[in-house]
Computed example of a mutant assay.
Amino acid sequence: MPEVSETERLTVGALISVMALLIPGFLLHEAPRFPGSLAGSLLGIAGATLFVLLLIYSLVKRSAWIRGRVTKHASLRVILSFHVYTGVVGALLGILHSGHTFQSPLGIGLVSAMLAVVLSGFVGRYYLAQIGTDLREQQTRLGALRTRYDLLAAEATGVIPQGAAAVVLPGTAPGSSVPRASGAGVPGIPLKHLLGAIADLEHAIGRREALKRTLSRWTVLHVAAALVLYPLLALHIWNGIYFGLRWLP
Rank of each mutant, 00 (worst) to 15 (best):
G87A: 02
V88L: 02
V88I: 08
V89D: 04
A91M: 11
L92C: 00
L92E: 01
L92R: 02
L93I: 08
G94I: 11
I95S: 00
I95Y: 03
I95N: 05
S98P: 05
G99S: 07
G99V: 13
G99D: 01
G99T: 13
G99W: 11
G99I: 09
H100I: 02
H100T: 05
H100M: 14
T101Y: 15
F102S: 05
Q103S: 11
Q103D: 12
S104R: 01
I108V: 15
L110P: 05
V111E: 14
S112Q: 07
S112P: 04
A113Y: 05
M114S: 09
M114T: 14
L115F: 14
L115W: 12
V117H: 11
V117I: 12
V118M: 13
V118A: 12
V118N: 03
L119F: 15
S120D: 04
R125Y: 09
R125H: 07
R125D: 06
Y127A: 09
Y127C: 05
L128C: 07
D134N: 14
D134H: 04
Q139W: 03
Q139H: 06
T140F: 06
T140N: 08
T140W: 10
R141F: 02
R141Y: 09
L142H: 13
L142W: 06
A144Y: 05
T147S: 15
Y149R: 15
Y149S: 07
D150M: 03
D150G: 08
L152Y: 00
L152W: 00
L152G: 00
A153Q: 11
E155S: 12
T157P: 00
T157S: 15
I160S: 04
I160Q: 04
P161K: 05
Q162P: 00
A164Q: 04
A166Q: 09
V167K: 13
V167M: 05
L169P: 08
L169E: 10
G171L: 11
T172F: 11
